[in-house]
Design a protein around this nucleic acid. Sequence first.
DNA 1: TAATGATATAACTATATGGTTATCGATCCG
DNA 2: CGGATCGATAACCATATAGTTATATCATTA
Lengths: 112, 112
Amino acid sequence: MDRFEELADGFKALADPTRLKIVALLNIRDCCICELVPLFGISQPAVSRHMSRLKQAGLVTETRRGQWVFYSLNRARLADFTLGVGALPDLSADLQKLESQGLLVQCTIKTS
Amino acid sequence: MDRFEELADGFKALADPTRLKIVALLNIRDCCICELVPLFGISQPAVSRHMSRLKQAGLVTETRRGQWVFYSLNRARLADFTLGVGALPDLSADLQKLESQGLLVQCTIKTS
DNA sequence: TAATGATATAACTATATGGTTATCGATCCG
DNA sequence: CGGATCGATAACCATATAGTTATATCATTA
């Protein structure tokens, strides 16, 4: 696969509004699938597959903590496509809404 | 359409290796369709539609000169998606190959 | 061990995408 | 005007994508 195909694949991973929102959210805080589901109007498997796509593009990494899998933004990789994270709208309000609804996971388990 | 959809549309325009090559080429020199066709293994209508996609995303502008339509890179717009043009491989060699084959248009008509 | 909860995967559907060939429109030139 | 060239559009086809529901996998906990 030549460089253009590699780059195109990366852009494909970013070429979806839901995945861009995921990136914007992970820029604020590591999240697990169950936190993201109520934010988007889509099913858990749909969120999971979006995350797989981001993972395959190297844009996120995962860490299992107990029964949850937390996803982190790979900012260095994101920079490869030089999407300035600052260019994304701030979604703090959405997270705050989740928190006010008690939907944020309070994970006390240490990273394995 | 919210900001995320707008951004996603822009990334979609960049999420194709042929279009990335077109961007890389336009970064070197304005081109018309007939110059690009022999560079890619695809038909003239296919190149034309790729260009439409880039045009719709605001990434290129067109200028008719006689029977040719020259396309220019909108670098400011490209910066919106902050793809550093420098991140793209240099395709000068391809253009030189075209030139050596006499396939570059020598347009003497002034911009209308 | 059994039940529960979080993710991932499978199978399916509808739409989007990227290619083709055929054809239309516009411009230039004899 | 008539022919030739460049580009755009139309119609079609194959594949990719993003969603769904159902189910499997893995970890926690009673």
